[in-house]
Simulated assay, not measured.
Amino acid sequence: MFEELKEAYHFVFEKELLEEINKSGYLKEFKEGDVIIEIGDHLKSMPLLLNGAIKILREDQDGDELLLYFLERGDTCAMTLSCCLGNTKSQIRAVAERDTSLIMVPIQKMDEWTAKFKSWRYFVFESYQMRLTEMLDTIDTIAFLNMDGRILKYLQNKAKINQDKKVNSTHQQIAYDLHTSRVVVSRILKKMEIENKIKLFRNQIEVLEL
C-alpha cells in the first residue's frame, strides 16, 4: 500500500506525512459500479484516491441523480471533508467509475495534520477550490449548454478520466447521470454520430471530438 501511496501523492505530501497516512489509514478496494459513499451515511474517514476514478452524484427529492464531478488518482472529495469536519450526514453519492482503490484516513487525524503539516493544509484548501470550480462548471453546463453540448462534454470528461476514447456507458446510464430521458440521449447520440463527433457501438461510445 505504501508504494501506491507514494506514487499517487509523493508530489503533494512530504515523506513524514506519507508515513503517517500509511500508518493511520486503511486500504479499501471497489469494483466498477460499487457505491463507495451513500447519501445519508455518517462518515468516519475521508478517502485518498490511489487508483481508479469516482463519480460524485447528487440526488433530488424524486430520487433522480445528477453528476457533479469526477475524482482521479491523487484527489479527495471536498464534500466528504466537509461532512467529516462537521460531523454531518453525506449529501452525495460516490460511485466507482472503474475499479478503484482508496486509503481511508480517520477524521481524528485531520486536525492534527492540519496543524502539523503545511502540505496537508494546502492539499485540503486546494481540494475545496478544485471541487468548487468543478461544481460551478457543472452549473454553467446546465445553465448555458443545450443537451447536445452537455452530452458531448460528459463523454469527453469520461474519456479523459479513463484515458480512453472508448467510453463504456449505456444510453440509460448517461440519462441517469445527466438527469434526462434515455429516448432523448439516444436521439442526440445518433445525431452526434452523423456529425462525426462520436461512433456508437453496443454499450460503448468512441469519442472522436476531444
Results as ranks from 00 to 15, higher is better:
46 M>E: 08
80 T>L: 12
76 T>R: 08
184 V>C: 12
70 F>G: 05
175 A>L: 08
42 H>N: 13
176 Y>I: 15
43 L>E: 02
132 L>T: 10
96 A>M: 05
13 F>G: 00
62 D>G: 07
43 L>D: 02
126 E>V: 10
27 L>G: 00
1 M>N: 04
64 D>Y: 11
104 M>D: 03
166 K>E: 12
30 F>I: 13
131 R>F: 04
88 T>G: 06
14 E>W: 09
116 K>W: 03
205 I>T: 05
73 R>E: 01
83 C>H: 04
75 D>V: 05
141 T>K: 10
4 E>T: 09
146 N>I: 02
137 D>F: 09
187 R>C: 07
130 M>V: 13
8 A>N: 03
141 T>M: 15
11 F>N: 05
168 N>P: 00
4 E>D: 14
166 K>A: 10
163 Q>M: 07
98 R>I: 12
10 H>S: 15
63 G>K: 00
150 R>W: 00
76 T>A: 06
92 I>T: 11
181 S>P: 06
142 I>F: 04
40 G>A: 08
120 W>T: 07
111 D>E: 07
108 Q>Y: 10
148 D>P: 08
50 L>V: 03
187 R>S: 14
62 D>Y: 08
180 T>Y: 02
121 R>I: 12
127 S>E: 02
97 E>V: 12
105 V>A: 08
37 I>N: 04
202 R>I: 13
88 T>I: 14
123 F>N: 09
198 I>C: 07
13 F>W: 00
30 F>D: 11
2 F>T: 13
82 S>N: 03
131 R>S: 15
41 D>N: 04
104 M>Y: 08
52 G>W: 01
203 N>L: 06
64 D>K: 14
38 E>N: 15
23 K>R: 15
196 N>E: 10
1 M>Q: 02
4 E>A: 11
136 L>T: 09
116 K>M: 09
160 K>Y: 05
210 L>P: 01
178 L>C: 04
28 K>M: 09
8 A>H: 01
193 E>D: 03
23 K>W: 03
187 R>Q: 14
67 L>F: 07
65 E>Q: 12
123 F>H: 06
197 K>I: 09
133 T>P: 01
81 L>D: 07
151 I>F: 02
38 E>A: 13
39 I>W: 06
71 L>C: 09
138 T>M: 15
30 F>Y: 14
184 V>T: 15
123 F>Q: 10
129 Q>F: 01
11 F>Y: 07
64 D>L: 15
77 C>T: 06
54 I>T: 02
6 K>I: 09
122 Y>L: 10
201 F>S: 06
168 N>Q: 14
20 E>Y: 07
170 T>F: 03
11 F>C: 02
106 P>G: 05
110 M>L: 10
169 S>E: 12
148 D>I: 12
17 L>M: 06
79 M>K: 14
57 L>T: 01
109 K>P: 02
